[in-house]
């Protein structure tokens, strides 16, 4: 394929390129979703042009998330590699039965892999409001059998989506809408990591800032501020894969920092951050020199108003303050 490897592309373009590659190299791959066909090419244009090139493998679905997922489960069990697109991850709740009870449980129930990929545009942008901004990983990491990945970078968006399609297990692919157009990078020098691996984005000795998806960028900017204003060197870890978790990379980091702050845009209750802290507390208690802490969205529906939105989602200043509290503890 003629993907422009050296030119900077956006996160959204990386997702489109990855799908193009998959359609090109694997005939079992097809894309199914609402309005994914041209001329619209998806709600965010992630499939723009693909139905023109692969008219029989990029298919519009009825407005029924349940039906989309159900059809993908059947196709996957039948040996296909479906990529399904939900216009907004918020609507994927309607497909929860198919994803949890059939895709996730399938391997145990009928001894057969269910290799579908669900593309889930998650996360908020100012003014997105309660039904178009939610993070849904806390729901979809609960049922057994579902892999959950959340790329933060252009390169990860590209490579991880291709790896997800190659994966025999059903993969929930969380793509953050705030990254779609604002993250721009070239793929030429970007390393391809294994799908389940967490990556250290910035090295430091004083505290481990753990996050994923768009929040990685807030953590990185907090780390720069901590270094500049307080001479505190934060290590920033991008989880990338939310289930299963690459805990060894975290433990390696905690070996030298002894302090853990997990930052997510999701709601706090029983989520990925809680899981990370639970595992660290039970497996690596001896490494902690301060209580493990987390920053999450407020436990309320996603607000519309920009001021409320700013209060709702942890920001750089919140991360800096929480990190200071932990380092001084």
């Amino acid at each position: 394929m003629n993907i422009p490897m050296s030119e900077p592309i956006t996160y959204l373009e990386a997702i489109r390129h990855a799908q193009t590659d998959c359609l090109h190299t694997d005939e079992r791959v097809f894309i199914y979703g609402e309005d994914v066909e041209d001329p619209l090419g998806g709600a965010f244009k992630a499939t723009k042009g693909l139905s023109t090139r692969y008219p029989e493998r990029v298919l519009n679905a009825p407005i029924s998330e349940d039906a989309i997922a159900g059809m993908a489960v059947g196709a996957a069990l039948d040996g296909m590699r479906p990529i399904i697109e939900f216009q907004f991850a918020d609507f994927a709740i309607l497909a929860f039965n198919q994803l949890a009870n059939h895709a996730g449980a399938g391997a145990w129930r009928h001894g057969q892999p269910c290799p579908l990929v669900a593309r889930l545009p998650v996360g908020g942008t100012p003014g997105g409001g309660p039904f178009h901004s939610q993070m849904v990983e806390n729901w979809l990491t609960t049922p057994p059998g579902l892999i959950s990945v959340a790329p933060a970078t252009v390169s990860d968006a590209y490579h991880m989506l291709k790896q997800a399609v190659r994966c025999d297990d059903p993969v929930m692919f969380y793509e953050h809408k705030a990254l779609y157009f604002h993250q721009r990078a070239s793929l030429s020098n970007a390393p391809e990591y294994p799908l389940g691996r967490a990556v250290v984005r910035r090295q430091g000795q004083d505290i481990s800032l753990v996050s994923y998806s768009a929040m990685v960028w807030d953590a990185l900017s907090a780390a720069e501020q901590l270094a500049r204003d307080y001479q505190i060197e934060a290590e920033v870890i991008d989880l990338r894969c939310l289930k299963p978790l690459d805990m060894n990379t975290l433990y390696d980091s905690l070996e030298h920092t002894g302090r853990l702050l997990v930052c997510t845009e999701a709601w706090p209750y029983a989520g990925v951050s809680a899981e990370v802290i639970a595992q660290v507390s039970s497996q690596a208690f001896h490494l902690l020199d301060a209580p493990p802490r987390r920053l999450n969205a407020k436990d309320v529906p996603v607000p519309f108003h920009p001021h409320l939105w700013n209060a709702y989602r942890p920001n750089t200043a919140d991360i800096v303050q929480a990190a200071l509290d932990l380092v001084r503890f």
Binding site: G258, F285, H286, L287, L288, D289, A290, P291, Q321
Partner: peptide, 26 residues
């Protein structure tokens, strides 16, 4: 910084002669 009570601060003060001994210290 605001001198408000954080959970971590109360952990530190609510302790014995040496303050809270973290698992890492132990």
């Amino acid at each position: 910084t605001s001198p408000t009570h954080t959970p971590t601060a109360s952990l530190a003060s609510n302790s014995g002669r040496h303050g809270f001994l973290s698992p890492r210290l132990r």
